[in-house]
Amino acid sequence: MSLTKRNEMMFPALMNELLRPDWFGGTQNVRAAVPAVNIKENEENFELELFVPGRSKDELIIEIDDSVLTISSETKEEKEETKENFTRREFTLSSFKRTFSLPETVATDKIEASYNDGILKFNLPKKEEALPKPKRKIELS
């Protein structure tokens, strides 16, 4: 006895055609892109920048829990287009979620954020004990 794999779809080409995202002339309008991020470390802090254009401050959700920084957003848009006897209604959902595990050297209670021209900026200051110590001269006795 031999085992053979069966194709359960009788008309795969037809099913692919019916399930196309642009079947009624629309386009697939799902945006699940994750925003680009820049991270820079200085002696006193970390700087984090996310590129999130087209969002308002109210649409951005920023949370910190147990040294995990979470930035997320979800926008919903509904538009209706009527031409002659045809009506087409489309819903747009755009969302993202980024999480960052912060190092132990970050003072999580002093994190600052700003949003300007589509760029979300964070200043993540380092704890005092993580800052570089200045040189000091040791006198011989």
Results as ranks from 00 to 15, higher is better:
I119Y: 06
S73M: 06
F11W: 13
T75M: 12
L14M: 11
E81P: 02
I64F: 00
S114Q: 03
M1D: 05
F11A: 13
E17F: 09
F51K: 08
T70S: 09
F46Y: 14
A13D: 15
L131T: 09
K79I: 09
F11S: 12
R88D: 08
F100N: 07
N16A: 15
G54F: 12
I71N: 05
A36R: 08
T105M: 02
K57D: 10
L60C: 03
E43M: 04
N45V: 02
P12A: 11
N45Q: 07
A32P: 05
Y115K: 07
F46I: 02
L14P: 07
T4L: 04
E84S: 11
S141C: 01
A32E: 14
G54I: 01
P132V: 01
K110S: 03
K40Y: 07
R20P: 09
N42W: 00
T27V: 12
I64Y: 06
N116P: 03
V68S: 10
L18R: 15
L60P: 01
I71H: 05
E80A: 09
S72E: 07
D58S: 11
M15S: 14
E74C: 04
N38Q: 09
P132C: 04
L48H: 01
L102D: 03
M15R: 15
K121N: 06
I64A: 00
S72I: 08
T4H: 03
K121M: 09
T87E: 08
I111Q: 02
A33N: 14
E49R: 08
T99I: 05
K83Y: 09
R6F: 01
F91R: 07
D65Y: 08
F100S: 04
E80I: 10
A113W: 01
L18N: 15
L3C: 00
P21E: 15
A113S: 13
I71A: 08
T4Q: 03
L140V: 03
A107D: 14
M15A: 14
F86D: 15
E77A: 11
N29A: 15
M9L: 12
F86N: 14
L3N: 08
Y115V: 07
T82N: 11
N123W: 01
F51N: 14
L102A: 08
I111K: 05
E59A: 08
R89G: 06
N123Y: 02
V68F: 08
F122D: 14
D66Q: 05
K76F: 11
F46R: 05
S73Y: 01
S101W: 00
K79H: 13
L102W: 07
S114Y: 01
F96E: 13
T82G: 06
K79C: 09
G118Y: 07
R88A: 08
M9H: 04
E17L: 13
D66K: 10
I64M: 03
F46D: 02
L124I: 04
E77T: 10
T99Q: 13
L14C: 03
F11M: 15
K5I: 04
G26P: 11
N123I: 03
F46G: 02
R89K: 11
N42G: 00
T92H: 09
A113E: 07
V34R: 14
K5G: 04
G25W: 12
L120S: 08
